[in-house]
Design a protein around this nucleic acid. Structure first.
Lengths: 325, 325
DNA sequence: GTTGTCTGTGCAATCGTTTGCAGATGCTCG
DNA sequence: CGAGCATCTGCAAACGATTGCACAGACAAC
């Protein structure tokens, strides 16, 4: 241990701490130099034992292979790092057992707070944390009664609907994602209500649920295109689903836009460079991550934080319009 | 603390430990029941303080938004979890400062081992860990003199070359990725050597480096297609680069396959469902993650582990062949 | 010269575990 | 019935840091 090196005992702790109050400048300097020379590293775990804070934030996501969540996690990690916290992330695969065991592991490490990115209707994780008194914030997906930082999914769905309505599409389909995730639910609701308000209510057969990945989009796309009167446009509640739907359109021998228009959601990087660039509703993923950390830090200080609802924007591309604006 | 609840003192520790030797079955049962009732959770950090093991494995990746690395990380986390370890992942963005600070944070948490997925030529992280005596394994990218688990990138490059040679392409371009990453280097070398062996050496102007993302692929693609005699086929050393190149082909008003054939690398999920499905060299990403954990666990036990070189397979699709086999 | 204030340092307890050692209890065997 | 042994439990010392408190010394004021 560095402290036993040359100098005194545990005055070193004070010397190495941020404010270093009550220690002579001279001593501080000497201790710090020695620490640097010896390659001394404070043991965060041991410090946490005493201070009660692990300086660790847990992040729950469905899957990191979903670029959307990976992007959010990246921004969370950056923001947390800037505040002096490390993050631990867990893939819960939208599965109760995985969530349980990962959350348990996090609590065993005396996590200081949790950012939940995988909540679903009926989910108990948030309630449990509430009961345990562990600060938490929901991100991306919301849940009634819990603080969340999300985009305005309802509005996003409406934007997609207005875009397609403006292009003259009357018979449209929706690939709605997970029926228990607020994102899929609200985007679908916003979309349907806009169509209904315009006088073209969408039949339930034209709304199919799916996984949030390419595979799910493919299957759902096939199902929609196999209807007796297939839709002339499809709204996919996320870009991966849209990519899968592209595969379905191709397999059905149809052309994107001319035969079937397609709108995705989130506007991930690759949407713009695809052979047929994808129209998508853009959400500010990085902001979401950053703001969720800010909200969590407030909660960890015991202060109140307000829910956040970021406004989405539709980016028109070749899957819906001929000439890109 | 649960132990002070009803029962004895720290016999509880023994009762809760895995083998529970030297404790009566009766006591074990009683303690465990009580622990369950009280929702007691062992503090891993405090235990680590005593035992010297944090049961934490650090993982260094360039970016999690790169699906390839996210996939590897997922499998690492699963394999580590099965062995009773948690993982912490860090985005180093292929940047020295980020790597330094993240590695420092990990060492401060007394990490038990590190899996390095972002090594580049000239990188010191591996040497530093070696010097500190912290077990580590390289994954995905190799580095001379360090244990690694990778796919046979040289062979993968050769497979791509043989495929294009077989289709009659003589003037080809390569988008080589990061010049300091072994993946890009070896895939490019394998590809070039196969072409050279076939009697069609590739001019340096037809080999351009790039970032490993869509953006980089787009820029490099534009550069290749702007050559006086543009290539009839392009080998991109990863699928995201290939996606970017697709954008370049589209922007140049050319058709995929007919005008410019395209081969990617890694065969990520979306490659198959694109409007024009992408020919790609598949590597067993999940296996790579799992095997890297196995190798690391061996090293952590002080045993020797052998380097692993997984064989890639080429999957032909519409960007190179008319009818998909 | 005594008292008081202030600054800088050291002491020791504490956080939640694990673990070597010793003590207690009950059993077996001679 | 006593010695010896096995089995179970408790004690206490670590692990590496933080922090309230007390103490030492310097200096000023009265």
């Amino acid at each position: 241990m560095a402290r036993h090196a040359q100098v005194h005992v545990s005055t070193a702790s004070r010397a190495l701490s941020d404010d270093a109050a009550g220690v002579s400048t001279e001593t501080v300097q000497r201790v710090r130099e020695l620490a640097a020379m010896l390659g001394y590293r404070r043991d965060v775990g041991a410090a946490g034992l005493r201070t009660g804070s692990s300086r660790l934030i847990g992040v729950l996501v469905p899957r990191l292979t979903d670029i959307v969540l990976a992007t959010i996690y990246e921004s969370i990690d950056v923001a947390a790092g800037a505040a002096g916290y490390s993050t631990v992330v867990a893939n819960t695969l939208d599965d109760t057992d995985h969530r349980r065991s990962h959350l348990d592991a996090m609590l065993s490490r005396r996590i200081d707070g949790v950012i939940i990115g995988d909540s679903r209707i009926g989910d108990t994780a948030a309630y449990e944390l509430q009961k345990l008194g562990v600060p938490y914030v929901l991100v991306m997906r919301k849940l009634e009664g819990h603080l969340s930082v999300t985009t305005d999914d309802f509005l996003g769905g409406r934007l997609a609907a207005e875009h397609l309505l403006g292009l003259g599409h009357r018979r449209v389909g929706v690939i709605a994602g997970d029926v228990l995730a607020s994102t899929g639910i609200e985007r679908t609701q916003g979309f349907r209500q806009a169509y209904e308000a315009a006088g073209y209510p969408i039949d339930d057969r034209y709304v199919v649920s799916s996984g949030f990945d390419t595979r799910g989009g493919l299957a759902a796309g096939v199902q929609l295109l196999n209807l007796a009167e297939p839709p002339t446009a499809i709204f996919a509640v996320n870009d991966f689903i849209a990519l899968g739907a592209m595969g379905a359109v191709r397999d059905a021998g149809k052309r994107l836009r001319e035969d079937v228009a397609l709108v995705g959601y989130n506007d991930i990087d690759i949407a713009a460079t695809l052979p047929v660039p994808l129209t998508s509703v853009r959400s500010a993923l990085g902001d979401m991550g950053r703001l969720s950390v800010e909200a969590l830090l407030l909660r960890m200080k015991g202060e109140a934080a307000d829910p956040v609802l970021l406004p989405p924007v539709l980016v028109p591309r070749a899957t819906t319009v001929g000439v890109v604006g």
